[in-house]
């Protein structure tokens, strides 16, 4: 803090340059989707239900209990089931406790869904969007499977390595005993601390995730006959930017994942989250086969302005 400045600063955390670039980026995104005839939808940020993902904590309100949405996903899936066609939302999302260089509890999320598409077509469109808004060269987009990047970086096959092997490497990275951790936790730790920083530059799509990291993606079988989750993550200059899925359609499977999430939440000492029955009813009625992706606008802006911390691109960061 510079001399003479009061400790309680009223000033914005973002630079004026970042605010100008943010306005331009939002306009470019809307132009991009308008040209492609994807409909912008304006959805509630306050909802009666929220995601059950054990690693996400929603911000909630008291009496009546409501949740600030951690993403517009469930509302968007209900629209898709109602026959909306291709849609996107560009809005605020909230995740309690996510605070750091690349995280702010309130942030701007771009999420879109393409009925009739799979994750491969959607990866192409994400690359197109990034090329058009982020001045990334046409050539600079590559795909790599989760297994190949693991093998190339840490010489372990993430699908076939034993939990013992994964936990040993995770313990080495964390400098703590991780031998009682789950396969998913070990994989997340290895990826976050060993692999992400060593990804190739430019736009990189990592796809075909291990089954235990499936979230709301459909399962498939890869060329080696291994069951994989049909989801992808997008990295721009080694920084995670977006998460995409060939979406789960089956209401029964969705219900099973809700209860598995709640089993984990209980074990973690977190409150259980009631299943979103309206989402399940929409899945019962029939969600069209679709691919969906959510992209962090603030992180993209960080890249555009060369910011070191997310607060530099948010007018008033937490």
């Amino acid at each position: 803090m510079s001399e003479g400045e009061s400790p309680l600063s009223w000033r914005p955390t973002a630079t004026n340059d970042a605010l100008i670039k943010r306005a331009r980026l939002l306009a470019q995104v809307r132009d991009f989707f308008a040209l492609r005839r994807v409909l912008e939808v304006d959805l509630p940020v306050l909802g009666a239900c929220t995601v059950s993902d054990p690693h996400l904590d929603s911000v909630s309100t008291e009496a009546p209990r409501s949740y600030l949405q951690s993403s517009p996903e469930y509302f968007m899936k209900r629209l898709l089931a109602a026959g909306s066609g291709a849609i996107y939302a560009l809005a605020k999302a909230f995740r309690a406790g996510d605070r750091g260089r690349y995280h702010n509890p309130e942030f701007t999320l771009l999420e879109w869904y393409r009925p009739g598409w799979d994750e491969n077509q959607l990866m192409e469109e994400v690359a197109d969007l990034l090329r058009s808004v982020a001045c990334v060269p046409d050539s600079a987009a590559q795909r790599v499977t989760y297994r190949d990047i693991f093998l190339a970086t840490v010489s372990l096959d993430p699908h076939r390595a034993s939990l013992g092997e994964l936990a040993a490497l995770a313990s080495d990275i964390a400098q703590r005993d991780m031998s009682t951790e789950s396969r998913a936790t070990c994989l997340d730790l290895i990826f976050s601390f060993e692999i992400e920083a060593r990804l190739p530059p430019g736009i990189v799509f990592v796809h075909d995730y291990p089954e235990c990291l499936c979230a709301l993606a459909q399962l498939g079988v890869d060329a080696d006959g291994v069951t994989v989750a049909r989801r992808f993550e997008v990295f721009l200059e080694r920084r995670e930017l977006a998460n995409g899925y060939f979406e789960l359609l089956n209401a029964g499977e969705q219900r099973r994942r809700f209860s598995e999430d709640n089993r984990q939440r209980k074990a973690m000492g977190k409150p259980e989250i009631l299943a979103d029955e309206q989402l399940l009813a929409a899945l019962d009625a029939g969600l069209p086969s679709c691919a969906g992706v959510a992209l962090g606008i603030d992180r993209l802006l960080m890249h555009l302005v060369g910011a070191e911390h997310i607060r530099e691109v948010i007018a008033f960061a937490d």
Partner: peptide, 29 residues
């Protein structure tokens, strides 16, 4: 340092100074 993959477990990578030995440890939680 708060580190979180796109979906999944979040971590804290913590640098801490051992006040007895003066050595700096890095641990991930």
């Amino acid at each position: 340092e708060f580190v979180k993959p796109g979906k999944g477990q979040a971590f804290s990578r913590v640098r801490m100074k051992n006040l007895k030995s003066g050595r700096v440890w890095e641990r991930t939680f």
